[in-house]
Design a protein around this nucleic acid. Structure first.
Length: 293
DNA sequence: GGGCCCGCAGGG
DNA sequence: CCCTGCGGGCCC
């Protein structure tokens, strides 16, 4: 670790924000770092992809007629059926409710629900967000938060979108959405999916609806499904298929929203922050990475 | 690495 | 129709 004098203002602020986030998590009962979790192999996080390019199977709607098929796989430790028989790769005895075949027509989706999605237990994983979306575990292809201000939040994806979020596995902090200009300028109009922060996040309106969903969950204490992505800088994140792992996105179980507060983001605007705690009685988290340095 | 484009789901 | 967003691919 470099001495603090050599750190940029941004990096100092990042560390300060992370320290503040950790204090929130510590107030929820667990000391920071190193607890729980089954320690799976010691594959270091690679700095560069193993292969420059992977041949990705038809994975865009244009390639398969307008819809994503289910491409969920189940982790090796879950790959045995309840009877103990080894199942064919990629199949579990409970993996049935969602189409196994390609579905050219738009599929009518049932309303979203709280809690585990039948057929997709803790440890289920995917290569792409769209597949996770098709399986109804996180019903958005890009957005990190799914839910409504009225019902609450059904699911979130942790994928390193905010550099000062803290992930201790059982406890984590998560930053809300909004506060960005995605339209570009009149002279140079864009249609961005993300962009630099330009204003404070809010709980209001369509821009704040996802924050309001998490805030509602803080009140209702309904469980939130948590999916971790490979871009998350955490020992609890999946390695990523380009880095020697088998998952890019992994369902890690149900969490409750324990805290909700307005904080200062790294880009100089207010952001909504949430602290989540994993519900007890679930399979242990997988730890595919060694300690980050 | 960064920049840019555009598909998609979901909600107003 | 419009808008949002922790994608993914491509180019440089």
């Amino acid at each position: 670790m470099a001495d603090s004098a050599s750190l940029s203002g941004y990096e100092k602020q990042r560390l300060a924000n992370m320290a503040a986030n950790r204090r929130v998590l510590e107030s929820l009962g667990l000391g920071g770092g190193g607890h729980g979790g089954s320690f799976v192999p010691s594959s270091k996080k690679l700095k560069t992809p193993i292969k420059k390019k992977r041949a990705r199977p038809a994975a865009s709607p244009a390639d398969n007629g307008g819809s994503y098929q289910s491409a969920c796989r189940t982790s090796p430790r879950l790959r045995q059926s309840s009877e103990g028989a080894l199942l064919p790769l990629g199949k579990t005895d409970s993996m049935l409710p969602w189409p196994q075949e390609r579905t050219p027509e738009k599929v009518e989706k049932p309303p979203d629900t709280f809690g585990e999605v039948p057929g997709f237990p803790v440890g289920s994983f995917w290569e792409m967000r769209a597949e996770c979306c098709a399986d109804l575990v996180h019903r958005a292809t890009v957005a990190g938060i799914v839910g409504t201000p009225e019902s609450g939040c059904y699911s979130i994806v942790l994928n390193g979108g905010y550099a000062d979020d803290v992930d201790d596995g059982e406890l984590l902090t998560y930053t809300g959405s909004g506060g960005r200009s995605l339209k570009g300028t009149a002279a140079n109009p864009k249609n961005l999916r993300t962009g630099p922060a330009t204003h404070d996040q809010t709980l209001d309106g369509k821009e704040g609806r996802y924050n309001a969903a998490l805030y509602k969950s803080h009140e209702t204490r309904q469980p939130v499904r948590v999916v971790r992505g490979y871009k998350l800088d955490s020992q609890w994140a999946p390695l990523g298929v380009d880095f020697g792992g088998e998952a890019n996105y992994r369902y890690d179980g149900l969490y409750t929203v324990e805290r909700a507060w307005l904080g200062m983001g790294l880009e100089g605007f207010r952001v909504w922050k949430f602290a989540l705690k994993r519900q007890p009685g679930q399979p242990e988290l997988m730890r595919e990475r060694v300690e980050e340095d």
